[in-house]
Each structure stands twice: as C-alpha cells, then as structure tokens.
Computed example of a mutant assay.
Amino acid sequence: MTNEGIRDRAAGALMGAWIGDALGLGPHWYYDLDELRRDYGPWITGYTAPRPGRYHDGMKAGQSSQSGFILELTARSLAERGDYDEADFCRRMDEELFPLLNGQPANGPGGYTSQSIREAWRRRVEQKRPWGETAGHADTTEAIERTLAIAVRYALDPGRLAETVSRNAALTQSDDLVLSLTVAYCAVLAQLVRGSALDAHLSDTLMDLVKKNVLPFHAVTRDGLKPPRPGDPDPPRAGRFASPDALLSPSYIARAAADPDIRIEPAWKVSLVYGMPCAIYHMLPAAYYLAARFRDDFESAVLHALNGGGQNQVRAILAGTLVGAQVGLSGIPQRFIDGLERGGELRTLALELAAQAAEPTEL
C-alpha cells in the first residue's frame, strides 16, 4: 500500500465520478430503451448533449450536472480545509449552490435539481431552518454522489470515514437505511483506494472492521456469520445501523459477476436485472456488478452503465468511481479526461485531494 498507489487510485475514483456524471448528462433518464437508441444510436461511446425538451436541456456535451457541481464543491472544501469541515461545507452550499436554485426540478446548475437537494433548499431557504433540520425522505443516492469525496479523503481511516460520511449524508437524507447504504458504499470505496479488489473477499475485510467497532453496524453473528453462542452478549457489536448486510452485498454481487454460470449479457442489461429507477436499492447492486465485472476496464464499466438507460447517470457515477479506484487515474483512458469540460482543472483538484488522502489522518 504505497503512497503513490493510493494517490493514483484516489484521484481515479474522483475523476471516475466526474466522468460518469458528464457521460450521463445527454442520455439521462430514458426509460424507453428504443427511444434512447433512436436518439443516440445503438451504442453511446462518449459525451453527448441532451436533446431539446429532455432533462438538462441547454447543456453541452462534456459538462457536469448538478451532481458533479456538488461533488466539486465538496472536494474543494476538503482540499482547501485539509479536513472535513462541516461549517465550511454548509457555508458553500448556502453561498454557492442555494442562490442558484428556486425549488423547482428543471432549474439550477446542470439544468436539474434532485429531490433531496430541493427539500434541503426549502427547509434552509424558505423555512429558515438551521442545518441539521434540512434532511428529507428521498431514497436516492444524492448523498453518495458527494460523500464519495469524503470517503476518498479518509480512505486510510475507516472510523473517521464512517463518522464524517454519516454526518454529511444526514444533512439531506433522514432515512436510516439510505444512510447505512451510503456509509457502506463509501467503506467499499475506501478499501478499493487502499488497494483491495471488489471481489468475494472484500466483505470479510469490512466485517472485520465491524467486529473491531470501527464501522458502526450492529451485528449479532460471530466470525463467518456463524450464530451467536449461549452466553454471548447482546449485541456483541452494537452500531448506529441496524444490520451489516449493506457491507455483505458487494461481495455477493462480485461472486455473481465472477461465476461463469451467471451471466448478464450484454452487461448493460444489468439495468433490467436490478432496476432502472433512481432508488438507492436499484443503483448500488448494478454499480457493484459492473465494478466487479470490469474491475480493470474503466471504459467498459462506464459505457455499460450508461447504455442501460433509466437512471444511467448515477449508475455511471457510482460504477465509474469504483472502477476508477481500482484502475487508478493512470488507468482511465485520456479521451474521457480530454472531453470533460474543465477536465484539467478537475484532475488537478482530484490529485490535490488524493495527496491528502495518501497521508495518515491526524486526529
């Protein structure tokens, strides 16, 4: 686990997210795959502009959506402060994002504002509530789309990662299941930045961290998911989140991706297997599958995520992040960086945050 390798993988994760976001800008939210193929051809290979009247109308190929905007805001706060500074993050949301919104979906940076951000805007701007009273019930992935930067920053400190990701995610998400899935994804990402593979053994590593009370998940089983014995304390490992199952799913899905008797062909049909809608429980399994199947092939992972339709932007963000963390910045084809608006600037930011991530966290 060299510093150079961590920096490369950390920067690859961040760039993978921005690339996935911009790839999804044009063909976002086509639930009719025949319509998607009519508008963009049989296979989308790069950045495209939205069609008139569609989501993100008026944006150009290679630009970021609001997800990319907020991810950059989060990454800049981390990089400039050198740490997670919640007051600074909230100030940036108040000053840099919320003045650009009006509470409507088809508005704001990137041409569209998601449900949880609209709800936070209403509570904060219209109702004048303090941060901490701004979360809503959306069961979507907006928190992951920004906290992945926090996961990169604290990849070497999983306990600090869980604490800071939980706090930041809770600013916009009130559902405990969504929060647990968000923390689990970020814990997976951290292990990939550290050099692990998304495979059948990754969940064992994560469960070891639960056993050591590093990750805040409740568990009653012993090692290897064996049942508790008479006299064992209840619970032996208590945590904020009711179950560690969110940490087990990635390895089960990785096993399926590696099993020759289980094939999703072509791989873009993962969207039909796990679901095309926006909810987090549709998005995460598809992203884990693509990231496990194409762990050393960034292009295949993001393009199959993209061509599956539905909420393909998030699918591409989440898969692009996980594969970017496995191949590193050095393993991302240069054309994806060249075609990304402000790609050089975002790359510099990714490398700056990655350099901080490679150093042990000081508490």
Rank of each mutant, 00 (worst) to 15 (best):
G275V: 02
T141E: 03
R153D: 00
D232G: 10
P42C: 00
P285S: 12
I264V: 08
D94N: 04
A267W: 01
L25A: 06
D157Y: 00
I253H: 04
A325T: 01
V210F: 06
P235L: 08
R9F: 13
A291T: 03
A138R: 11
F294L: 14
S116Q: 01
W29N: 10
P266R: 06
P109A: 06
Q104Y: 03
V125H: 05
M276W: 00
E95F: 08
T164E: 15
T221H: 07
D32T: 00
T321D: 13
P266T: 09
G82V: 03
V165D: 13
E80V: 05
A238I: 11
E341N: 03
E142Y: 12
L78T: 10
Q63V: 07
L78S: 13
G24K: 01
F217A: 13
G275S: 03
R76M: 06
P227S: 04
A190C: 02
E86T: 01
N102T: 02
N307Y: 02
V214C: 14
G82Y: 05
R118A: 07
L25Q: 02
E4I: 00
P27C: 07
D57Y: 12
T134F: 07
Y154A: 09
Q334V: 10
P230K: 07
T321R: 07
D338L: 01
G103Q: 02
A292W: 12
T147I: 11
Q191C: 11
L363H: 05
V214E: 12
A187W: 11
Y84E: 03
T74I: 08
A138P: 14
F98H: 06
S166Y: 15
G195E: 15
D296S: 15
D57Q: 10
L161M: 02
P158L: 15
L329V: 00
S77C: 09
D32F: 01
L349M: 09
G53D: 05
V165N: 08
D32H: 00
R91L: 13
G324I: 10
E95Q: 15
Y30T: 03
W29H: 07
P233E: 05
L171Y: 11
V193T: 12
L192K: 08
L97Y: 04
T140A: 09
E72N: 06
W131C: 04
V125E: 06
V125P: 02
F294R: 14
H218D: 11
E359S: 12
A291W: 03
G309D: 00
S330Q: 08
S330R: 13
L306K: 01
L248K: 09
D94W: 06
G231L: 00
E265Y: 11
L363A: 12
L189G: 02
R315H: 15
E35L: 12
D85F: 02
R37V: 01
A138G: 14
A87E: 06
G320P: 04
A61D: 08
H28R: 10
G24M: 01
Q191Y: 05
N3A: 14
V152E: 00
P52G: 00
P227R: 02
P285F: 14
D83K: 13
V314F: 09
A254H: 08
L198E: 07
Q63N: 03
I6H: 11
